[in-house]
Design a protein around this nucleic acid. Sequence first.
DNA 1: TATGAATGAGTCTTCATTCAT
DNA 2: CATGAATGAAGACTCATTCAT
Lengths: 239, 239, 239, 239
Amino acid sequence: MTTAMAGDRADARRNRAKVLAAAADAMAEQGLDVPLGEIARRAGVGAGTVYRHFPSKQALLEAVFARHLEDLVASGERLAARCAPTEAFFGFLLDIVELSSRRGHICDVVVADTSWPRPGLTAARLRFRQVLAALLQAAQRAGGVRADVAPEDVAALAAGCVSMLGARRDRPAGLKLVRLTLDGLRPSASVTEGRSFRDSPDVRCEECGSALTVRPTGRPVRYCGATCRQRAHRRRLAG
Amino acid sequence: MTTAMAGDRADARRNRAKVLAAAADAMAEQGLDVPLGEIARRAGVGAGTVYRHFPSKQALLEAVFARHLEDLVASGERLAARCAPTEAFFGFLLDIVELSSRRGHICDVVVADTSWPRPGLTAARLRFRQVLAALLQAAQRAGGVRADVAPEDVAALAAGCVSMLGARRDRPAGLKLVRLTLDGLRPSASVTEGRSFRDSPDVRCEECGSALTVRPTGRPVRYCGATCRQRAHRRRLAG
Amino acid sequence: MTTAMAGDRADARRNRAKVLAAAADAMAEQGLDVPLGEIARRAGVGAGTVYRHFPSKQALLEAVFARHLEDLVASGERLAARCAPTEAFFGFLLDIVELSSRRGHICDVVVADTSWPRPGLTAARLRFRQVLAALLQAAQRAGGVRADVAPEDVAALAAGCVSMLGARRDRPAGLKLVRLTLDGLRPSASVTEGRSFRDSPDVRCEECGSALTVRPTGRPVRYCGATCRQRAHRRRLAG
Amino acid sequence: MTTAMAGDRADARRNRAKVLAAAADAMAEQGLDVPLGEIARRAGVGAGTVYRHFPSKQALLEAVFARHLEDLVASGERLAARCAPTEAFFGFLLDIVELSSRRGHICDVVVADTSWPRPGLTAARLRFRQVLAALLQAAQRAGGVRADVAPEDVAALAAGCVSMLGARRDRPAGLKLVRLTLDGLRPSASVTEGRSFRDSPDVRCEECGSALTVRPTGRPVRYCGATCRQRAHRRRLAG
DNA sequence: TATGAATGAGTCTTCATTCAT
DNA sequence: CATGAATGAAGACTCATTCAT
């Protein structure tokens, strides 16, 4: 009986794993909106079975994300145990980018700190954050990474690199961009003190809606040109 | 010129602009999957009116993307006319990142070169690419940007920066990251010849499905540890 | 002034005619469900103009039907004036079939006596019926048509011939069928006193729903075969 | 055989049959445009259930048509097995007309050879055509049907008879018409070599649009009468 | 327990009709 | 008076979730 029960539990465990893997694949290929039925089909189970293991589609998505984070954590711990601090840190970043870009649509949601503040994901995310922070701190202590960088910076940088890699069709060229970007974390890199971003609101032609250039001085522009100004004038007369 | 009948169409033009703006806002806030009814509600019109101006939801999305690209193009042309080449180029990149990150979910689809190869968007995208290439080339001639960078690299870099900025809650910190990344394009930056990415396939425990480290030598690992190996053994005996 | 007004009215009259013709064409080609906008487009007017002349789409359809009936009436009167009774009668039938089959989807609704008992169509339909009855009676008096035929019979026969002609791709062959059918009205034709129609209701297998042969004697069949009988039996046991 | 799992599918099979029957009824009563929701309501299921069994409304319609054809085929095979050739042939035609007229709007689409050449219906239609051709040939060999009749003729004739029966409110009278028409297929019937159809184009009054008689000689008529001729003259003066 | 059938709310889209211009 | 833009009520179809078998 014990074995039979154990066998049953093992069946269930295997089913759970199959569903999780199928969900990860399906989401990587078709996006996060992939129908649950498609996931069930890929896993070779019925829709009901998916619901037996995950109370909702949301929960399934979060399990996929958590799983991804766990994989990243495993990679980080492996590197921490085997490499010198700086090497481990950059290796970790490369692993994050590599694994995440392989997982397609999953990554954006997972790496960044802003998105999906759902309960249930917290534990895996926390663990990931701890590993990241530890590797960063060690590398900073070893002098391999600039001191003015926070763990959140690294996470955001990684998210950006995933996007880059996804946006560049030519993969080697994409990897070069990633290395270029990550090198910005090294102490040698200097940040240009360039112009800051405008914080002006979107200003548009009141008549046709096209974007307007905001000039710092003088009377604010309301229309994109003489034609629209005239049109508005005419309407004022009519109204 | 367009006076006589324009009165009639002014309403329609304004409505079209309202719909486009509402769509851009809604998509920025709620993602590209925002229901068309929500867009109509925000624009203060009926669903039918949206369809009068855009033959399908797809077409509406593409009009929003095209509009975004046109805004970027306008910004690029303004900078090209007013600033020195290098300044214009980096100013353009900052504008791209700034405007795109304001527009939330729209940007990813628009800036990158891989996504959404739909007809109809082509014209705006082509124009954008031309402006980008021209600014890049001018900056490279002026010695302000590394020579080994293609327009596609810049586009991908911009897409990555948008993600970064979106991932970093602290906006000034996010901007610092963006500058750090863009500085990688300056001739002074050097790309580390680091380890290359693994191209090994995903290898997982046959029993529980967790990720496995692939080691270059020795017998391939099949299980994540002793527990799973034992479980599999037991099942082989039973089966 | 008077002429100007008259000109206006003439414009309106021409517009009405254009709409009516466009509607007839559109309905003949695309069916009675053709969108009103398509009709307006073909007529070269706005949707509002259609509504100025016809209070609803329904009314427009009925005007088209009435117009068709008027054409038929005109044809009938012409023939009555010019030909011998029997010739006129059969010529009228051929005209009905010919014109109606040209008008595609319009005919079914118009010729038959059962369909569309809407007010407004009545006048034209009544007129049509009168002409048909007069021609029939004259032909019967001349001995060219069997005496046991009512005007309703002729109308139904005509409706059937239109269907025939529409169903036969090969037009000459279709016309032969029509003549064959109409010849049944001549006194020489004899109606076979064949078996009458079953009036038995649709009987179907209670398990799978397939059609069953109804046999006049013996116990009524409930299932299409042994398989379904067994299935039903099993369910009775289970229930 | 199909016992173990059949229990699960029996429900589905019954539901499929219910939907099919409801669709046939609804289409017979309300036409082919009957909303899918109405069909679902009649079947006592949700809209989704209809879609589980038929991938689209189109597919459902075709299933209904195919089912109708299968019923006709069954009837034909029964008659072929039990009756003498000529009797079987005319009995088959009567069955077609009877069953089809009961099914209202379904018949037109199904019996004729021109309409709805959709894939998927082909198999059932082919089968129907084979049975029809076989019965026809046998009857012709037996001398009960004219030799110059093709299967397509018979199909078109049947379609016409269905229309006839539908157009004649008085059912016995309608049946008489059908027998009259079908008797045209017997060898004794002779086809009158009457006047052929005009192939002249539609000629209409240029002023009011009413139909004009085309006369073979003389100057072509442009207006329906003096009134319209005068109106047109006046407009020419004004214009 | 696993399955997949059923459900029904929600989405895109069309089109008859109204109404401002 | 003509135009065509706006409206909104349906209709076809999808899919997360529940539940009978």
